[in-house]
Amino acid sequence: MSTTKLIDGKAAAARVLTQVKEDVATLKRDGIEPALAVILLGEDPASQVYVRNKILRAEEAGIRSLEYRLGTDTSQAQLLNVIAELNADPGVNGILLQLPLPAHIEEARALQAIDPRKDVDGFHSENVGGLSQGRDVLTPCTPSGCMYLLREACGDLSGKHAVVIGRSNIVGKPMAALLLQAHCSVTVVHSRSTDAKSLCQLADIVIAAVGKPRLIDASWLKPGAVVIDVGINRIDDQGRSRLVGDVDFDSALPQVSAITPVPGGVGPMTIAFLMKNTVTAALQQAQAQRSQSEAVCLSIY
């Protein structure tokens, strides 16, 4: 019988959201109402589901949610105007631009237009740079959720060898930075890596974020490794559509000490940490405003 520990992302996300709800209640008692604005362009079905789930979680946590649904034909200038208005609105603490965007929109330019203090996705270069320097900034939600799961599964991560499979700006790179902050030895493998499989076989921790269904099987993994599977891939399985990860779960299960399932692993953590980032942003903005008011008062005297 396998003694592998399944890492339950749903239960972990529920714990994070319970804490977020308590934090929101505390902020409201101090006159601060956290608010999240979500911008969605077009009619992509998956994006609509994601946005609906994010707004639902926000409302459950007591966070005020604002939806901006824009047509596929929205111009770059129109999108930037919406972002500028939200940046200037003191009642909005977090801004989320749902990806992917229509092909005619410059993604990097749109993300860079968001005030880094309201960038609850952690994609602005100010936050990306701050993360690499170890500063206290808003960090991408999926890697943050992965770190929470790892700490629950492993305890102290110091000295462990972590291999991150994938180097995307959304997961791979920030994941590596967070693992370095936790004092891991970190290897990032990708499509140009030489013998990525051998590198993975040395890892105490494997983060799979490459977007290829069931790429990593037991032969890639050291016995007793901890595996966090970020991949969400829809495949046809004997005529039925189903979701699988980047890891061949059935193959890996007897080999590892702990693993996230797909679905039910990392996915719920992403939304939970979006809510957490929104509360953090609201608190930081309130503190900055308070400090500014005090500075004005001092300047008068």
Rank of each mutant, 00 (worst) to 15 (best):
V230I: 11
P261L: 07
P34Q: 06
E59K: 13
P268R: 00
L79T: 00
H183Y: 12
E152D: 15
Y301A: 13
H183E: 10
D236P: 01
E59W: 06
D236L: 14
D236N: 15
G159N: 10
V137H: 00
D30R: 14
P116I: 08
V82C: 10
G145C: 05
D217H: 07
A153R: 06
Q285M: 15
P223H: 07
H161R: 15
I170E: 01
V266G: 07
V186Y: 05
I259E: 05
K5A: 14
S132K: 03
G9D: 06
D248Q: 13
A58M: 01
H124E: 05
R29K: 15
E33R: 13
N233H: 10
A177C: 13
Q292I: 08
Q48V: 03
L36I: 07
D119K: 04
M275V: 03
S158M: 12
E85Y: 04
R234G: 09
L179C: 04
A218Y: 02
V120Q: 06
A177D: 11
T142K: 09
A209H: 05
V137R: 01
K5P: 03
D246N: 03
R214G: 11
Q133S: 11
V49Q: 09
N53Q: 13
S132R: 02
E60A: 11
S291F: 11
I205W: 06
R117C: 09
G245A: 07
A153H: 08
A258M: 12
G211W: 08
P268M: 05
P100V: 11
L79P: 01
L157Q: 02
L99H: 06
A153V: 05
I95G: 00
S299H: 13
A35E: 02
S144F: 02
A13L: 04
L180R: 03
V120E: 02
K212L: 11
L79H: 05
T187D: 11
Q289A: 15
L86Y: 04
L41A: 07
G231S: 06
N53T: 04
I83T: 02
V279D: 00
M269F: 07
G172Y: 01
P45N: 09
V164D: 02
H190A: 08
S241A: 15
T270K: 01
V188M: 08
G155C: 12
P263A: 10
G231Y: 03
A58V: 02
E107Y: 07
V163R: 07
A35W: 00
V210I: 15
L178Q: 10
A176N: 04
